[in-house]
Write a protein that binds this DNA or RNA. Sequence first.
DNA 1: AGCGTTCAGCTAACTTGATTAGCCAACGAG
DNA 2: CTCGTTGGCTAATCAAGTTAGCTGAACGCT
Lengths: 187, 187
Amino acid sequence: MPRAGLDAAAVVAAGAALADEVGFANVTMGKLAERLGVRTPSLYKHVKGQEDLNRRIATLALGETAEAVGDAVQGYAGRDALAAAARAFRAFVVAHPGRYAATIGVEPEGPDDPLATAGQRLLRAFSAVLRGYEIKEADRNHALRMLRSLFHGFATLEAGHGFQWSTDIDESFEWLIDFADRGLRGR
Amino acid sequence: MPRAGLDAAAVVAAGAALADEVGFANVTMGKLAERLGVRTPSLYKHVKGQEDLNRRIATLALGETAEAVGDAVQGYAGRDALAAAARAFRAFVVAHPGRYAATIGVEPEGPDDPLATAGQRLLRAFSAVLRGYEIKEADRNHALRMLRSLFHGFATLEAGHGFQWSTDIDESFEWLIDFADRGLRGR
DNA sequence: AGCGTTCAGCTAACTTGATTAGCCAACGAG
DNA sequence: CTCGTTGGCTAATCAAGTTAGCTGAACGCT
């Protein structure tokens, strides 16, 4: 019986890919094992179990999102940076709905949880956007939370097909960016 | 063996209450049956199964949210209406995290799905808020989606303890309302 | 090359939870 | 009172996660 040559990273990566294909809720240990050409119990050599797997997928997804947003912002400032960050964020969620779904509702278990670290990297990427606006120190965290709520909300609603009628979604998103930009400039 | 006198509504209501107590993800047919003083299979006389139950809980939650927001808005206009709607929405989500979690990611199965109806009632409540602002017809749906994204995003992040550091969350929320109000007035 | 250790992957078995089939008694209409 | 409907039950099946314990492949060392 030849070895499959797996490790934790490979298992998590395959889990994330599977989540994008079949939906995060449908990622089972069995399907993932099959995908990897291995029997289910073998996965337990690499991850502690389903919950650990989910948490690791979420961590991976947050890290990738942070990287995408961070890269997109490079070299821009003000409205351009905001738009770039917003589009990169949304593009990631649309392209990887399963991964992103994994991040909803997971909580870091401590300050040194890699999940927390990845989350902070994403926050820093959005923080960088705010530096292009004149925001009072006291308002900075509020503005950050606003941006996060706005884009997280839009992305999850879109990913869940929450927008019902027919107005163009791309157009709404650009409108949203414009709305946020004006609001941030006007204070 | 005396009958428990259940019906679909009672089962769903108990399921919603259970979701608020133990978290939506932990609502099992078994726990719900126990809570109702009945054996698990008996629940299938009232709901088709777990998925049907979840969908019904989501429908109930959306309806209650719509009612709460609709009531809160009564008699107000403009900024007052926006603030009332926002606070009512957030209060509901904080008070009923399990119910609200049930609404995330469910999709109506058709135009006459009660879930869709409930969702539209909630949308209408927010629509009413927008009537207090001078919004161009073409922008109305965008603005509606913006409000929905903003409040849905904030509520889910808060419910999932997604806001990490210590800045006061109530304060951020009021800041958010103010931000939305100014943005909606300035166009 | 031979040797020993480590450990990835396996089979077997257990557990929990959802679901179905089929029985039976409680309730309501006449 | 009788009968049909139907809510609740027991028993059984199925799917998925998880654990225990075995075994041989890979690798380093001599």
